[in-house]
Design a protein around this nucleic acid. Sequence first.
DNA 1: GTCTATATGGTGATAGAC
DNA 2: GTCTATCACCATATAGAC
Lengths: 222, 222
Amino acid sequence: MTDSATTKGEQTRELILSTALRLFREQGYAKTTMRAIATEAGVSVGNAYYYYSSKDHLMQAYYDHLQEQHRDAVETILAGEKSFVVRLTGVLHTWLDVSAPYHEFAGTFFKTAADPKSPLSPFSTESQPAREASVEIFRRLVEGSDLKLAPELAKELPELLWLLQMGVVLFWVHDDSDELQRTKTLIDRSVPLVDRLLRLTRIPGVRGVVNDVVGLIRAIKP
Amino acid sequence: MTDSATTKGEQTRELILSTALRLFREQGYAKTTMRAIATEAGVSVGNAYYYYSSKDHLMQAYYDHLQEQHRDAVETILAGEKSFVVRLTGVLHTWLDVSAPYHEFAGTFFKTAADPKSPLSPFSTESQPAREASVEIFRRLVEGSDLKLAPELAKELPELLWLLQMGVVLFWVHDDSDELQRTKTLIDRSVPLVDRLLRLTRIPGVRGVVNDVVGLIRAIKP
DNA sequence: GTCTATATGGTGATAGAC
DNA sequence: GTCTATCACCATATAGAC
């Protein structure tokens, strides 16, 4: 079965999704109505709901789409670079590049994602696969890098970096500076900082704090 | 002009707000319709919109309400306690207590607040007064404590603690554990950690990182 | 399985009464 | 200034056509 020979249903599904994403980009999420998506795609509203059970699910699909793009775009960096700083900076900047076209309406996505009851929440069980795929990127990032760490810390680090990425996203969503200069500064300056902090963990006095951090993380995990 | 002799309009405004908050608590935000609020308060829907131009604005009012309660509840701790750890733990736990009745529908509030375009966003200009009042609590917390810090760090610390509080809120919103045990653990274990970290800043190697952190914060501020 | 027509109940806007 | 009646438009549910 090739891509072009997909079933009628798959074609309609694709058509609805691409139409929705286009309209989201053109007029924002709130102003894009399900009616408009259906009309533009040449289907009935009910049909759109047949494939995507809510407007939020269209966002979910967009999110998965982004995720895949990011995973692919990051490949060359992870394959051919050892420096932890360069790897992390690269992964974060790549995310910025991939997401750039959606910056304007990303706020709305974020809004939905922030609701703990939403399946879109990055902490929800529904988005667990996407979250794990994302953490996996950071795991590879750490493992293939020149970073030497205590095993307990190394184990938690990918999830911590994922949290850092969430923080960057939060900042990005609120960033209205020219060319996203502030977010770029945030990345470029915080990554070396993280690197220095991680290397500081060799100092005995600091190591105690690190152990406490690791203990805390384990204590509050569900 | 006393509280009881407020204008008719003020009374109606109060009535609508208290009715809304009660219904929010009883049935959650999404399920509470503007129609229901208006009916229950004995006014027309249009009238409710006259005083609160959207459902979100009713949330804004609720938020301000919480803020005031927190500020008052925190007074005794800030007045009669020197230990930084006790002060910070107290302030955070007090927030938890004040907000407890709203935990269930807080997610929806959070959802709205996460939208950068919403006036409810903690980073928006509209909520700047509320944010400053909140940071002010942390400023008093630091200044009246036994903590000794380098001046540059002491200057940024209140805002950093406010960010910590935002983090706790984010965690709290997603916390469905019994009696909010996980959030309480987070507070009880992270506060001593913050304390230790702050005291570590006396070590020369650590101080360099701290300076970088302070520099970073200043660089990304709007 | 795919899709349409139609219905329900919601938000928010506004003309104009008091 | 305060408020009501009413309206336009929306997300979503569902019965049933193809």
